[in-house]
């Protein structure tokens, strides 16, 4: 039996949570557990209005953890995130699901977190302090604390791309999700960030792809090479959507197609 505790502020919720409770954001993942009788005995939530705030100062954007996908889609200043938010769940789920919740959503969910990983977002915790999203994602299964907000640097025009491969149109869940931040100096790629969903237990960086891109001009020959090697070092899961073998086979193909489309080819 699940008891729900609602607090007026995030800070109070964070103090109350303890080790026997789970935090509930938009509910799209947690309520399913509640319905199935699989949720912890205590659920903690908050009505803190600060969580739903979107703040933009120049290219520094801060998303409250409780900002919904629909709120992002309704904000014209967040246009670079629209292709991501539009691909999350169904219209109903986008009205409920939050940025903070997406970070903790298990495979095959959590496509927004894949984008945040590529964008090198920083996460501000309720307890104070900020850390790279990559670090938080690595430890997300070990009670890392509550998220207050996420700072997302706005990418240079054309530098960010996102692709979700799914079997069902228009709203299937992810077979593979790819987010790519490709900055260039003098036409050559510098410090690209490639993030994968569906290619590991959660969102992961694509080290092999990033290495292959480093210092390169993007042309057909380079993309063909990238397509062959991008999945190296990754250990994708087998699930009802696809096998590990299949994900590995096509990951590079989809990455190359994404980069090609970002080139306008």
């Amino acid at each position: 039996m699940t008891v729900v505790e609602t607090y007026p502020t995030l800070a109070e919720a964070a103090r109350a949570i303890g080790s026997d409770a789970a935090y509930m954001g938009g509910g799209t993942v947690m309520m399913r557990e509640v319905n199935a009788g699989e949720a912890p005995a205590r659920l903690v939530r908050t009505n803190d209005p600060a969580l739903a705030q979107i703040r933009a100062a120049g290219d520094a954007i801060s998303l409250g953890a409780g900002v919904t996908m629909s709120a992002i889609l309704a904000d014209s200043g967040l246009d670079f995130l629209h292709p991501v938010a539009r691909q999350i769940g169904s219209p109903q789920v986008r009205n409920m699901g939050t940025v903070g919740g997406n970070i903790f959503s298990p495979h095959p969910y959590g496509d927004f977190a894949v984008a945040l990983l590529a964008l090198d977002a920083r996460v501000t915790m309720a307890a104070g302090g900020a850390r790279p999203i990559e670090e938080l994602l690595r430890g997300r299964d070990h009670s890392p604390g509550l998220v207050a907000s996420i700072d997302v640097p706005r990418p240079a025009p054309g530098a960010f791309g996102f692709k979700k491969v799914s079997r069902v149109k228009p709203k299937g869940v992810s077979v593979i999700t790819i987010a790519a931040l490709v900055n260039r100096t003098g036409g050559r790629v510098q410090n690209a960030r490639i993030a994968w969903g569906g290619m590991g237990p959660g969102p992961v960086r694509g080290a092999a792809a990033e290495r292959a891109l480093q210092g390169q001009m993007i042309d057909d020959a380079m993309l063909d090479r990238l397509a062959r090697t991008a999945a190296e070092g990754l250990d994708p899961p087998t699930d009802p959507l696809a096998s590990s073998w299949y994900r590995r086979e096509v990951a590079g193909v989809h990455l190359a197609r994404l980069l090609r489309s970002m080139e306008g080819r």
Binding site: T6, T28, M31, Q92, M96
Partner: peptide, 12 residues
């Protein structure tokens, strides 16, 4: 806004 009633806590 459309939402899924099965994923909403009644008390909220």
């Amino acid at each position: 806004e459309t939402q899924l009633a099965c994923l909403v806590l009644a008390e909220t």
